[in-house]
Design a binder for these strands. Structure first.
Lengths: 343, 343
DNA sequence: TTGTATGCGTTATCAC
DNA sequence: GTGATAACGCATACAA
């Protein structure tokens, strides 16, 4: 029962005393075919419960109408939203998605990418893992003639299509907002600096300080504080400094910001009066903490849609002008209670 | 550049003056092949940057080592966690995942399933959409000889592998807990009753009331309150009844429970003193609301792993005993502040 | 140990 | 309009 032979176009052909070619034409309505026979084919195909073998079809046609997506974690809000956005568009166009997660491991990412190449996907969409070192596997994708689109976390040196957030600007705005609220000693929780996005966020932070002539305090910059736990740990450290910060910008994630908030609250420090807190990503929970957390919305679903649209655009105007395009989405600062000191 | 011909086993064969079969054998180390030639093949394959065409291979082999997953929403915590769990196991076994989302629409679900059948996936994993009416498309999967595994939301009448939560028991425990905390007038927010999971949760609720000889109040049971907004709306309705409930069990989701909490708080009603609130799913935010929300953990990642393991088990002992197996996972009640009135 | 021949299911290019 | 035939790239039974 398990190894049951499936119905093929030959089975239909035999039944109708025509050849497989006729059946094929009828089913894919390509080429000439008598209206009557066509209807007959369609009818018996339905009767026999025929399902086209996409494998064979793809092999013959040389394209799979499939897009491979590689993300660090599927079950992370930002990424699952981007995927949902991609899916929304690709589904309408009749394309399929193969999803892989790299688990933030470079090695697994390489394996995923290779699998996708083997699968002959038409396009690979990727946001690179945190510990990525080399980008040979991505160069490989390009070499195989497969469209490559990077989003969010990108290898800047590779000339590919990119969809990114203007991290620096968003970060700059956030810190400016803090300063305008009267915070003067602003700490930064930063992420792995091998990822462009975290470097950019740091740059935005520094630019804002510079604009307002606020000196940089090295002790206020904490590396790799990008989980809730690490955020909490960093906070304990920061709040035991001789010279305390009066605001913490968790540029890595809202989870980190949550760690800050919980720790500060536990220590009896009043937010936002004594400590301002700003996160990144606009996770759902930031709205419902008390106080609610100021954060930055990345428009993740929209980002996914943009990625997908970019692919189809690029495919349609297939001129050889391989001009690498980069789309930057402007994130939005969402001001909430955790940083609101002035009316 | 885009339509660049990829390297095939023939290219390697030509280069080494052997035949494609030898190359094939060497690459898939099947059958006899001279150690020296094998090494040579492997070396030049690497040199030429050969990538196996999985399409052709799969067509030949009659299996794709691919599993299709259909969920209502990719970017919903529960589902993205299940997917992550599935991926974790299947990745280790060298299997791929094709993910589709039905958007809670039966019609889209049917299309997804058909696409997966066409793709000749080895297995289809599905959690049915909320508005599903017929299950013909799933019967179809079985008829095509494809392994079908349902999880969470299942069509009970279909004899397939199933991985479910013991919803009734969890719901029963939750309501018993409420009663033991002194709540006497417990309202129920219920989900679409065409989905088994919501029927079961309702049954658990009724069973608990019965056990404690608490009469059923029809006005306390609100249909289709399974989003935050609908939960809020239901709460306003419930809290304007002449005879108020003193607890609300949002059996549909934590989002619904959040709507309850926010509405109650806005109305100046004290939680848990005047109103007990219990949700479902253990979303991350339930821990950080104030008060934190009592809820039920479904072990979603574990559920995904269970699904994947079930597939591999079933594949390995391929005896024809098509005994439909069903695995039930016992969810866990997480008691938090929103229902804690007694020490 | 290697080569030859064939087929997986489909589509495209020819003839007829 | 329809049929015969080849090809997509790989894997295997069989022959050598």
């Amino acid at each position: 029962m398990n190894a049951k032979k499936r119905i093929t176009i030959y089975d239909i052909a035999e039944r109708l005393n025509v050849t497989a070619s006729t059946v094929s034409r009828a089913l894919s309505n390509a080429g000439y075919v008598n209206a009557a026979t066509k209807e007959l084919v369609l009818k018996t195909a339905a009767e026999l419960n025929y399902k086209r073998n996409t494998l064979a079809s793809n092999l013959r046609m040389g394209q799979t109408k499939t897009i491979g997506v590689v993300v660090p974690r599927i079950n992370q809000n930002f990424f699952s939203n981007v995927i949902a956005g991609i899916e929304d568009i690709t589904y309408q166009k009749g394309y399929n998605l193969i999803i892989c997660q790299s688990d933030e491991q470079h090695q697994k990412e390489v394996k995923c990418v290779n699998t996708l190449i083997n699968q002959h996907v038409d396009c690979i969409v990727i946001s690179v893992s945190a510990d990525s070192v080399s980008y040979q596997h991505l160069q490989n994708v390009i070499d195989q003639g497969i469209q490559l689109i990077q989003f969010d976390r990108v290898a800047e040196e590779l000339e590919t299509l990119k969809v990114i957030n203007d991290n620096e600007q968003a970060s700059y705005q956030a810190v400016c907002h803090l300063i305008e609220q009267g915070y003067k000693k602003i700490a930064l929780l930063e992420g792995p600096q091998n990822l462009n996005i975290f470097r950019q966020r740091k740059t935005g932070y520094l630019r804002a300080l510079e604009k307002y002539n606020i000196p940089i305090t090295d002790a206020f910059i904490v590396e790799n504080a990008w989980t809730k736990e690490l955020g909490a740990e960093a906070t304990r450290k920061l709040l035991s400094l001789p010279d305390l910060p009066d605001a913490i910008f968790a540029s890595t994630s809202d989870f980190s910001a949550l760690g800050v908030l919980e720790t500060a609250t536990a220590m009896g420090i009043k937010v936002p009066a004594e400590l301002g807190i700003c996160g990144y990503s606009n996770e759902a929970f930031t709205e419902i903490t008390s106080p609610s957390i100021t954060t930055i919305d990345q428009f993740s679903v929209f980002m996914g849609k943009t990625v997908a649209n970019l692919f189809f655009q690029e495919m349609e105007n297939n001129d050889t002008s391989v001009t690498p395009k980069s789309i930057s989405i402007q994130p939005e600062l969402i001001v909430r209670s955790s940083t609101r000191r002035k009316s």
